[in-house]
C-alpha cells in the first residue's frame, strides 16, 4: 500500500504535468493498471517474475510475498494516481495564479500550496482503497499464500456443521475489522486536522 501510494502520488503529479509526453504516459499507465483486474495482475507478477535474481554472481531468491506485494501495488498505484489527479484538479486555478504572481515556482506551488489543500479531499477515497486492498489480500491466498479465509473454509468443511458458518465468518470479519478500524480512526483524525476552514 505504501509503495503503491508513493508511486501513485508521483504518477498523479505527472498527469498534470505541462510536458505532454509525461502527461500522456502517466495517463496511459494509470488507466492500464486501473482497468486491469487485480487478480490478473497478481497472477502475472507471481508467475512471470523470476524466482530468483542473480547479481554479481550472488543469487537472491524472490519470496512470494514480495511478488504479491508488487502485484497488488500496481493497481493501488493506478488508483492513487487517479485520486491525486482528481484532488489536484479540484483546487481552483486561481490558487495557482496567485502563487505564480507571488513568484512561487510550479514545484513550490504544488508542494506548499496545492497539495496541503488536497490532503483533506484525498483521505476518504484513499481510505476506501486501503480497505479494498485489505480484502484483496484474500486474493493472494488463491495463489498459494495460506491465509485466513481458506483456513476458515477448511475448518468449516472439516466440521461439516452449517450452523457454525455464520460464527466462523463473523470471526473472520472481526479480524478484518480489527485491522481496518484503527486506520479508519486515524484517517478521521487526520481529516479533522486538515479541516481548517477549507
Amino acid at each position: 500500500m505504501a509503495l503503491g501510494t508513493l508511486v501513485g502520488l508521483f504518477l498523479g503529479f505527472a498527469q498534470i504535468s505541462l510536458v505532454t509526453p509525461v502527461k500522456k504516459g502517466a495517463w496511459l499507465t494509470t488507466h492500464f493498471f486501473r482497468n486491469a483486474p487485480w487478480l490478473v495482475l497478481l497472477f502475472y507478477c507471481l508467475f512471470l517474475l523470476p524466482f530468483q535474481v542473480t547479481v554479481l554472481g550472488l543469487t537472491f531468491p524472490i519470496p512470494d510475498w514480495i511478488k504479491a506485494t508488487f502485484g497488488l501495488s500496481l493497481p493501488v498505484m493506478a488508483n492513487v494516481s487517479e485520486i491525486v489527479r482528481g484532488a489536484l484538479q479540484s483546487i481552483p486555478t486561481t490558487q495557482w495564479e496567485s502563487a505564480a504572481s507571488l513568484a512561487f515556482t510550479r514545484r513550490q506551488t504544488l508542494w506548499m500550496i496545492i497539495l496541503p489543500q488536497c490532503i483533506k479531499r484525498m483521505l476518504p477515497p484513499w481510505m476506501n482503497l486501503y480497505e479494498i486492498l485489505t480484502m484483496a489480500t484474500v486474493l493472494t491466498s488463491i495463489v498459494g499464500v495460506n491465509e485466513m479465509m481458506s483456513l476458515t473454509r477448511q475448518a468449516l468443511s472439516a466440521e461439516n456443521r452449517p450452523g457454525l458458518l455464520l460464527a466462523f465468518y463473523s470471526y473472520v470479519l472481526f479480524w478484518f475489522f480489527l485491522y481496518c478500524y484503527p486506520i479508519a480512526r486515524w484517517t478521521v483524525r487526520l481529516e479533522a486536522r486538515y479541516a481548517v476552514n477549507i
Binding site: T94, E97, S98, A99, S101, L102, I113, Q117, V196, I198
Partner: peptide, 15 residues
C-alpha cells in the same frame, strides 16, 4: 518579485 498583483477574489491560501 518587482510587480505584484492583487485579485478581485483575494485568493488567499486557505490552509
Amino acid at each position: 518579485k518587482e510587480v505584484s498583483i492583487v485579485f478581485q477574489q483575494y485568493n488567499l491560501f486557505p490552509h
